[in-house]
Amino acid sequence: MISEIANRVFNQVITDYHKFDNIDQAIQNPYNQDSLEHLFYVKNWIDTAQWHMEDVVRNPNIDPVEGLSWKRRIDAQNQIRTDMVEFIDGYFLNLYNKVSALQDAKINSESPAWALDRLSILALKIYHMREEAERSTASTAHREQCQIKLNVLLSQRDDLSTSIDELLADIEAGKKYMKVYKQMKMYNDPSLNPVLYRKS
């Protein structure tokens, strides 16, 4: 099952990242470059680095100039994240390109890679919520509340994993078909963002 591979790789990435806990740590992807595992490893490494960038920028005492620098870095990272999702969708489009959709085939509201994107972020939520549920310096009430939230996240992961596998099975069987739309983010494009093009 694809979700099983994804969850395993996402957990591995998060563990590998926290050996260094350094946003600028160079990625050391252990998987063959042509494998789906390789793509999942890159995907979650991007998400994990961005997760920690978001932590840094929310420091209420951050210098405003430094905060703006982090915000711009997060924007750039978010574009990389989007590009990676679309690249993974390309993998699935290629994988299923010989499948003939049935006459009554339906399209899904989101592509496989965007569902996997949510699974990747969910892996990060689970890791950090588990940290809070087990943090010895936190109050008992805090740990108990975090454990309740963790249980919900774990259930959510099970449901999302099942949905992803069912979606891919339906695509493979021709019951659903893929149609991928580029995100067309406008705020990073100097020709589409009015604040940017009005300055030139």
Rank of each mutant, 00 (worst) to 15 (best):
S3W: 00
D159A: 15
H38R: 11
E144G: 02
R198V: 02
N78I: 02
K175V: 06
S3K: 07
Q25W: 08
L168K: 10
N29I: 12
I80L: 12
S139N: 03
D16T: 05
A123I: 01
D170L: 01
D55V: 14
K106L: 14
D24V: 00
K185W: 14
K176E: 00
P60E: 03
C146T: 03
W51E: 06
M178T: 09
P64L: 11
P60Q: 03
S163I: 04
Q12M: 11
S191T: 02
V152S: 09
W45N: 03
D83P: 06
S100V: 15
K182F: 14
L153Q: 03
L153W: 13
K182C: 05
L116Y: 08
I2R: 06
K19H: 06
D117K: 13
L93P: 04
K182Y: 07
N94A: 00
Q147D: 10
I164M: 05
A123S: 15
L160K: 12
W114P: 09
M1N: 15
I126Y: 03
N22E: 12
A6L: 06
C146P: 00
T82D: 12
R143F: 08
H38V: 10
D165V: 02
L119E: 05
Q50K: 15
E66R: 12
K106W: 06
M129N: 11
L119Y: 03
I74N: 07
P60N: 05
Y96D: 02
S3Q: 09
D117F: 02
D83Y: 04
M184T: 10
L68A: 02
R143V: 10
A49R: 08
M84P: 00
Y96N: 02
W70M: 05
N61S: 13
V99H: 11
Q147W: 08
K71S: 11
S69H: 09
I74W: 00
H142Q: 10
N32T: 12
T82L: 10
N7A: 11
D21N: 13
A138I: 00
Q28D: 14
I121P: 01
Y31N: 09
W70L: 09
N151Y: 03
W45V: 05
